[in-house]
Simulated scan of single mutants.
Amino acid sequence: MSRSLRRGALAATAIVFSIASLSACGAGNDAQTLGVRPDNAAVSVDDVKIQNALVITQPDAAVKGPAVVSATVFNNGSAPQTLDSITLPGTTATVKLKAAEGTGPITVPAMGSVIIGGKGNASATIETGAEAAKNGNAQEVVFKLSKTGDVGLQAFVVPATSYFKDFGPVEVPKPPGAEPTPTGEATPSGEASHEAGH
């Protein structure tokens, strides 16, 4: 093999090694991209893990109405636990809990999970949502479970738009200045004119 061919082979080998070492930064079990974590709040205490915790407000910032807490609560223990309360420290807001079915408490089954928020799931409604949480802030939220006790974390406050639309408040009042929706039962025109004549 000639001297120029050997030099070319060595140069090609050096390039292959440099590319391999650079690409190692973005692949494999130790890849730096694996260190990226989602923005949604998560915390673990004993057997309980809470993920994707959010406070979701009305879709229109000008509307005063209820907000909700949305989260997934996991129970890795061997016994079920009940979610006794959710509180928002630093506010006077109260959170009303409702199980997905029936009138009992929200139960997190052993080795199972419960989704709070969204159609057909358990719910946690903050009646004074507009006063309790401001969009863009992080709000401390404390989940109190029957065995684990208090599990607190900082949850982002977001409006019920885009990805969060289906998990936001069920009750959405009309924005200020919008035409009010008629309430009550409609009266047939014949009955209305009949009563007007009396």
Score class of each variant (00 low, 15 high):
S2W: 07
R3C: 03
R3E: 14
S4H: 11
R6K: 12
A9L: 15
A9E: 10
A11L: 14
T13C: 07
T13F: 12
A14P: 03
I15H: 03
I15E: 05
F17T: 08
I19S: 07
S21A: 11
L22Y: 13
C25F: 09
G26C: 08
A27G: 09
N29I: 06
N29V: 08
D30G: 05
A31K: 02
L34K: 13
L34V: 05
R37Q: 08
R37V: 13
D39V: 12
D39K: 10
N40D: 12
N40R: 12
A42C: 01
A42M: 01
V45N: 03
D46G: 04
D46T: 05
D46P: 01
I50P: 02
Q51M: 06
Q51W: 00
N52H: 09
L54G: 03
V55L: 07
T57H: 04
T57C: 08
T57R: 02
T57L: 04
K64W: 00
G65F: 13
V68P: 04
V68K: 06
S70D: 11
T72N: 09
V73Y: 03
V73A: 01
F74H: 09
N76Q: 15
Q81C: 07
D84V: 08
S85C: 10
I86Q: 07
T87L: 07
G90I: 10
T94W: 00
T94L: 11
T94I: 10
K98T: 15
K98M: 11
A99I: 11
A99L: 06
A99D: 08
E101D: 15
G102P: 08
G104M: 10
P105D: 14
I106P: 11
V108W: 02
P109I: 00
G112I: 11
G112T: 11
S113A: 15
I115P: 08
I116C: 05
G117D: 02
G117I: 07
G117L: 05
K119I: 12
K119H: 13
K119F: 13
G120T: 02
A122F: 05
S123C: 08
S123E: 08
I126S: 02
I126Y: 07
E127V: 13
G129L: 08
A130E: 13
A132Y: 11
A133K: 07
K134S: 13
N135G: 11
Q139A: 11
V142D: 06
F143N: 00
F143Q: 00
F143T: 01
K144Y: 08
K144C: 03
L145E: 02
L145R: 01
L145V: 00
S146N: 04
K147H: 05
G149L: 06
G152F: 01
L153W: 01
Q154H: 06
Q154W: 04
A155S: 06
A155Y: 03
P159S: 05
T161G: 01
S162I: 00
S162D: 12
Y163E: 05
F164C: 01
K165H: 03
F167H: 07
G168M: 04
G168K: 05
P169I: 14
P173H: 00
P173V: 00
K174V: 09
P175V: 14
P175A: 15
G177A: 05
A178Y: 02
E179V: 10
P180S: 02
P180Q: 02
G184H: 09
E185M: 10
G190A: 14
E191Y: 15
E191N: 13
A192E: 12
A192L: 11
S193Q: 10
H194W: 14
A196C: 09
A196S: 12
G197V: 10
